[in-house]
């Protein structure tokens, strides 16, 4: 799979404070690449660099194999974007708001109807955007991004302001983009849980630097697992197990052993020694825990 977005040693600072540090981003074609990191990690700055809204201090950006520095217009013609909150004119209707980018993207009125229907706003095309709820504005922002039938969707926190049903709809929409429309999707979020159900690839940013990048399966493979034993008199139980060569850490009433420790043998040993074993379970880090650990 070729990389649709490729950045190399990308750096950008504001007032001497580095916001993005030596970022090597590789977004494969046809992927849903979740760009993750806590607030202030540099996601929005990276996205603004990729869209040409700001210029890098150093490093290069290639999109569709084209250098952004010299081919900005050719790149933007094939990109749909939503950066932070949607950019809308409250004194215009939804249709009038879309007619503006439609004119610049050389799109027809039917395209406006199409995207309004896609985001579930076809019934409110004539309503002034100033009267829209936050969720409706977010949907209209997505409609703007989809208007030019882009090959790449760059979306900064696309589910901001949406209710749970809206979040679900947007997730389904983004998930279907690669298979149904051949669109590569690059959404950012500060919550892994928001995107883990739809992402094929993940990039995790912390303090402006990439700490993990790759397929979700690679991230999942890094999960750490352990054996958790909940037992009465846990301090004595720990001494008992350690004496038999099974190293454990105590966390309250629970004993944590290596994932490779023999669960059945540990259970038998504890029961035979008179301990009451309440629970014995193999645990695995959730992706969210891994994400939090990395950032």
């Amino acid at each position: 799979m070729a990389n649709l977005i490729h950045t190399s040693k990308l750096c950008r600072a504001f007032n001497g404070q580095p916001e993005v540090r030596a970022l090597d981003l590789e977004v494969p074609e046809g992927a849903v690449y979740a760009f993750l990191g806590p607030n202030g990690a540099g996601k929005s700055t990276s996205i603004r660099l990729i869209l040409g809204l700001i210029r890098p201090d150093s490093g290069t950006i290639n999109v569709f194999g084209l250098p952004l520095a010299t081919e900005r217009l050719a790149v933007l013609r094939r990109v749909g974007s939503l950066v932070e909150m949607p950019s809308l004119y409250p004194h215009l209707t939804a249709t009038e708001n879309l007619a503006i980018p439609a004119r610049l993207l050389q799109r027809r009125g039917t395209d406006i109807s199409r995207v309004l229907e896609t985001v579930g706003l076809s019934g409110v095309g004539r309503k002034l955007v100033g009267n829209f709820s936050l969720g409706m504005k977010q949907r209209l922002g997505l409609a703007q991004a989809l208007l030019g039938q882009p090959e790449l969707l760059v979306l900064d926190e696309p589910t901001n302001g949406l209710d749970p049903a809206g979040i679900h709809e947007v997730r389904q929409l983004l998930k279907s983009m690669p298979s149904e429309h051949g669109v590569t999707v690059f959404p950012s979020s500060h919550l892994l849980s928001e995107v883990e159900q739809l992402a094929t690839h993940v990039g995790i940013l912390s303090q402006g630097a990439m700490v993990f990048q790759g397929p979700v399966s690679d991230l999942a493979a890094r999960r750490q697992s352990r054996l958790r034993v909940i037992v009465d008199r846990s301090a004595n139980a720990a001494v008992h197990l350690n004496a038999r060569g099974w190293s454990t850490d105590r966390q309250g009433d629970a004993l944590i052993a290596s994932a490779t420790a023999p669960a059945a043998a540990i259970n038998r040993s504890l029961v035979e020694a008179g301990f009451d074993v309440h629970q014995l379970v193999h645990e695995e880090d959730s992706l969210e825990q891994m994400f939090l650990g990395m950032t």
Binding site: R48, L51, G52, L53, L73, A74, L76, R77, V79, S81, L82, V83, E84, M85, P86, S87, L88, Y89, P90, P101, L104, L105, Q144
Partner: peptide, 18 residues
Amino acid sequence: GLEHTDRNWKYLMTMPVP
């Protein structure tokens, strides 16, 4: 103000026009 409000520049400037 039409563009400064809601920071509309960030969408306008991603349009494929100089």
